[in-house]
Write a protein that binds this DNA or RNA. Structure first.
Lengths: 270, 270
DNA sequence: CGCTAGCTTGATCTCACTCAATAGCAGTGG
DNA sequence: CCACTGCTATTGAGTGAGATCAAGCTAGCG
């Protein structure tokens, strides 16, 4: 199986969206039962799109913001910096994630948001979100739910750092990403593209790149999983999940329905 | 200065609430500008109160819930257990915190909620919250904001585990608790009651109780802070915050107004 | 072709863990 | 009243997982 290149991360062959318009908008999590009007309201709330190059900072800590970004293509992260300049990632976002919906109620963020790869986002002005909130209670609760999912993931990241050792952390993270990518059709369950360096992985799991390298070798030797360049191939998902103590319940996929099922949002107005 | 005993943690002398009714309800975070009718709606949504003894589990992971709990007195925690049975705390709740408002949209939790001390909560049925959500957009956003604050705190807990060493973690945690207790009038800025054992502190900071003991000795020797029994006395707040790289911005106190200023909610109906 | 970013491997060091022993204190029961 | 139990805190000695430092290796790219 040949997997697509990093530069197109998250870009399905069947959704070659023109840059100017968001034609197909994927929401990979939680947008469960939406009526046509709710879906329309969401599409209408989009004021435009923006593109980021790999490594670019999209939102800076403490800066007041009045829009929120939904990731359409590529991979983005949330991160903080320690005093010595070391970076730590506290979230990894995949296509369909509402990257900083948090900003809608917070008004400014306590962390940076950056693009890990080239990325495209759809822009939702808070003014529009407020309009949704005052007229679509059900949709509002779905959006609220999305931010709670982020919180649930944060808790798992805490668990990962607090309770797992190096190899278990990496295993847990790979399982999480695999599961989330499956939900948006970017993993077949065993193989996917992960455009992260070993330094990035270290910043997720709080390990040095040197140690990440050793851990990945162990995963190879134990025939659990291959991570080379940006290709991840899981050899034994069950044992990998077992090793990482990965329990996907926190992703709430029972409620969350992939957009693939929901269909796409059609933006009609500019 | 004599500080009150643990058994009364969070109980102000001036708010001796009868058990049967929530007369004075404190919300220590974020409930900023609420109209009288919004405050009334919130009070009306309370169906009753409940009490927990120290150590009791209030909500168990995975169990469907249809009410959310606002902590009125005492201290509660959110926690998960690793496979080997080790516990890790991922949040500490103080009087005024909406402990599991998350459950309103999530319907079941990915973690346990437990009482660290004897605790009293006010109960909000989700049915009532849904009514609020469909009629009070502003109030809804305030409640949403509360859950986002939790997420912001989660991120700081990730930062703490990822980027700080043992003594820095403890320093950071003590600064956070001090700041949050100040907001509800339970710390004078340098001295407060913290009904946690060294085992508990270890479960917050991912350290063994043995190492917590050594770290607390260091904090004593460096004349930063005294932690004995349940009494915490901060000797040099500036240096302690510096050590823990503590930046209170993530608590969003600029927006969050202590209830002390807002006044209390009066429950009129049963 | 040389340069740079990313990856690998080895040697050494250190922070925090483990194991173990002791002491203080509260509660309980004889 | 003391003896006993269990919980909490303290201190010491030995250990180990992962960090640090350093040297090569590989591959993509101008």
């Amino acid at each position: 199986m040949q997997v697509k290149a990093c530069s197109n991360f998250g870009k399905h062959p069947f959704e070659m969206t023109p840059l100017s318009l968001v034609k197909d908008l994927m929401i990979n999590r939680s947008i469960g039962e939406l009526s046509a009007s709710e879906r329309q309201a969401l599409a209408d709330a989009i004021s435009g799109t923006a593109d980021f190059v790999a490594g670019q900072t999209a939102v800076r800590q403490g800066q007041p913001v009045d829009v929120s970004l939904l990731l359409v293509e590529g991979m983005m992260t949330r991160q903080v910096y320690a005093r010595d300049g070391r970076r730590h990632l506290m979230d990894v976002h995949l296509p369909g994630d509402f990257v900083d919906l948090h900003a809608y109620a917070l008004k400014k963020l306590d962390h940076d948001v950056g693009a890990l790869t080239a990325a495209k986002v759809a822009i939702f002005p808070h003014r529009e979100l407020a309009r949704i909130q005052s007229t679509f209670p059900n949709l509002t609760r779905q959006l609220w739910f999305l931010t709670l999912l982020d919180a649930a993931m944060h808790r798992q990241w805490i668990f990962r750092l607090a309770s797992l050792d190096a190899i278990e952390r990496i295993a847990h993270f790979l399982c999480e990403i695999n599961t989330r990518l499956m939900a948006i059709g970017l993993s077949d369950g065993n193989r996917f593209v992960l455009p992260m360096t070993q330094v990035d992985l270290g910043e997720v799991c709080s390990l040095t790149n040197v140690h990440v390298s050793r851990v990945l070798r162990q995963l190879r030797e134990r025939e659990l999983c291959l991570v080379r360049a940006s290709q991840v191939e899981i050899l034994d998902l069950r044992r990998l999940a077992q090793l990482g103590q990965f329990e996907p319940a926190y992703l709430y996929f029972n409620r969350a329905i992939s957009t693939r099922a929901v269909g796409s949002l059609q933006k009609v107005s500019t």
